[in-house]
Design a protein around this nucleic acid. Structure first.
Lengths: 145, 145
DNA sequence: CTTAGTGCAAAGCTTTTGCAATCCC
DNA sequence: GGGATTGCAAAAGCTTTGCACTAAG
């Protein structure tokens, strides 16, 4: 989670202007580990930035991705999710409640290398998604029976 | 790639009727390794099934996924892609031309187990996506310089 | 001051839905 | 024949776009 000052520098270095909206979107995203969708971020910011529009949230997220401050996830829902942790790490998604968590510290570099070997591609990025049932939903199920 | 007879059995076993449209969608998907989108399948089938509609393609794909004959991919595009190879295997996507290839034979079971350890989830599925430049696009680039 | 960014509404896409006609079993 | 399925058109949902106004540098 970077400070506003650092975000400012990075935006400027890429030729983008620094606006309260962009800082707010980054900061809201950096404060949570819930991997929110654009709409969710918008609803969170609205009380503090009453004139902000959903289109601006989308544009800001696009730029934050472009400068490498944010990454876009797609767990196979209707909408994208966003993550201010840009270190490559897997995500895990609950089929029951839809929550998305980080999976810490699995080393995936070897995987990427062997994928490059098999396919002849030059591999630059990777995304790993796991799906299952989160602890809370599992306990919920057990209670019912 | 299963024969029509086997597809028929599997659909019936799940209580679904067997229609020419469903068989055609499966067969088109089983014949290719290009991981097409619904629209692409629709365009391919249209000459042979002039009355088929895109909605039917979507509905058929949904049912084929449900009975385990097909899996849905999401490489982070606007649209879903589909794969008749339901064995869990990674995919690799070219950032330049958008093609999606299979990555054969990487063992991912250990990954899933350690993800379950880290997070407390019960892990049931996984999707691994690599991104980079495919051999054809790389050679194209070299030619230019 | 100049140019990029915001906010609004409208458009664009993919995917889903409602419903009458049709087809599978 | 009965009930699921098709095909069409319309709807729904997410994301992008065009444009006048505003604000950053």
């Amino acid at each position: 989670m970077l400070q506003a000052k650092e975000v400012t520098q990075i935006l400027r270095a890429h030729g983008f202007k620094v606006t309260p909206q962009r800082l707010a979107v980054y900061s809201a995203l950096a404060r949570t580990t819930a991997h929110p969708q654009a709409e969710t971020l918008y609803q969170e910011l609205l009380p503090y930035y009453p004139t902000m529009s959903l289109a601006t949230v989308y544009k800001s997220l696009g730029i934050l991705c472009e400068v490498g401050l944010v990454q876009e996830l797609n767990v196979g829902e209707d909408a994208y999710r966003y993550d201010a942790n840009t270190a490559p790490h897997p995500h895990i998604c609950c089929r029951e409640c839809g929550r998305v968590d980080d999976v810490p510290a699995l080393d995936l570099t070897a995987l990427g290398a062997s994928a490059a070997d098999c396919t002849g591609y030059t591999v630059t990025e990777q995304q790993v998604y796991f799906y299952g049932i989160c602890p809370a939903c599992r306990h919920q199920r057990e209670k019912v029976h």
